[in-house]
């Protein structure tokens, strides 16, 4: 296995799928000539040409609609939004169309569409470029939602998302793009809907998504020095959720903490908590807790941003809180 960055792994996934299937194409702002704002679509234009790597106008609603329409006629569009915040402009096409068309036609059509977008908290871009809106889409039946935390998962999940016949929202993280990790040399697919145990442990289950997975792993190492063994689970696919693996872990550790970069109110962490409560209440030895950003928009200045975002320390202290009961 070789070391590859998260961004390179995504680029490989796109390149391999575009080579495999001539109906896979990429569209979005600055994806061609520039190779994407964060270089995920780098050099695709040179290999696949302007009919399959489409630099669009700044028209998020039309980009999403064009994705839906082209998917309806049997192609496999992969849209890039530069920030997940910009998906708010395209919500009608994502929520009212992509998510609904299969159901409304009783299965007559399908919408094999992938929408990639980074979550960007942590680089002082402020309130309109730093949200983590994944729970909006998890809330909506008809969509699948993916959020990889490692280069290997990013590659394997994107390839599976492109091959999936449903609309898949694929959330990356700006801070992960440069992170490197081992990626298999051979064909590498990660099935949607399968969670991964990133670290085994016996004392506490810690479910973390996206960027918070690496924070969770560091927190777990720190607690391990004190003899506390935390099991870290990355759902990888937020919807459909691999509840089996999570329940199994909770039944072993009897304690749960959930970490997410999305706000707590009606957020992803809340959904995981509620699901575990419904199924594992009598297995729990302590109340479930969650670690989420503070309930304010994201500020720019370093100390303010730090005060709002989830940190490794927050995770450590909340682990202790769950273990104290």
């Amino acid at each position: 296995m070789r070391q590859t960055s998260y961004a390179e792994a995504l680029n490989e996934a796109l390149r391999e799928e575009m080579r495999r299937d001539p109906l896979v194409f990429v569209l979005g702002e600055d994806v061609g000539r520039m190779g994407g704002l964060f270089k995920v679509t780098q050099a695709l234009l040179e290999e696949f040409g302007p009919e399959r790597v489409i630099d669009t106008p700044i028209s998020e609603a039309a980009i999403a609609g064009a994705g839906v329409g082209s998917a309806l006629v049997g192609t496999r569009p992969v849209i890039e939004f530069q920030f997940n915040d910009f998906m708010t402009i395209a919500m009608d096409q994502i929520v009212n169309h992509a998510a609904k068309l299969r159901y409304m036609t009783n299965g007559m059509v399908s919408v094999p569409l992938v929408i990639r977008a980074p979550v960007c908290g942590g680089i002082s871009l402020g309130a309109q470029h730093s949200q983590s809106l994944e729970s909006w889409f998890v809330h909506t039946p008809g969509l699948k939602v993916v959020m990889p935390s490692t280069p290997a998962d990013a590659k394997g999940l994107l390839k599976s998302a492109i091959r999936d016949d449903n609309p898949v929202l694929f959330f990356e993280h700006r801070l992960l793009y440069a992170q490197t990790g081992e990626v298999p040399d051979e064909e590498h697919l990660v099935a949607l809907g399968v969670a991964d145990v990133k670290r085994t442990g016996t004392d506490l289950t810690l479910v973390a998504t996206g960027r918070t997975v690496s924070l969770a792993l560091r927190a777990a190492e720190k607690l391990s020095e004190e003899g506390i063994e935390v099991e870290v689970i990355d759902p990888r696919t937020l919807k459909p959720l691999d509840t089996h693996l999570i329940f199994q872990s909770v039944r072993k550790t009897n304690r749960l903490l959930v970490a997410s970069d999305g706000w707590s109110a009606c957020g992803y962490a809340s959904e995981v908590m509620a699901t575990v409560m419904e199924h594992c209440f009598f297995d729990l030895d302590a109340p479930i807790q969650r670690v989420c950003p503070k309930d304010v928009p994201m500020p720019v200045a370093g100390p303010l941003q730090k005060a709002v975002m989830v940190s490794e320390e927050d995770i450590v202290s909340n682990c202790r809180r769950v273990l104290a009961t």
């Binding site: 109906l23 009919e51 980009i63 839906v68 329409g69 082209s70 006629v73 192609t75 096409q93």
Partner: peptide, 14 residues
């Protein structure tokens, strides 16, 4: 309206 545009994009690719 944008779905029609996407359909035209798709059929051209095909």
């Amino acid at each position: 309206i944008p779905i029609a545009v996407g359909a035209a994009l798709g059929v051209r690719l095909k």
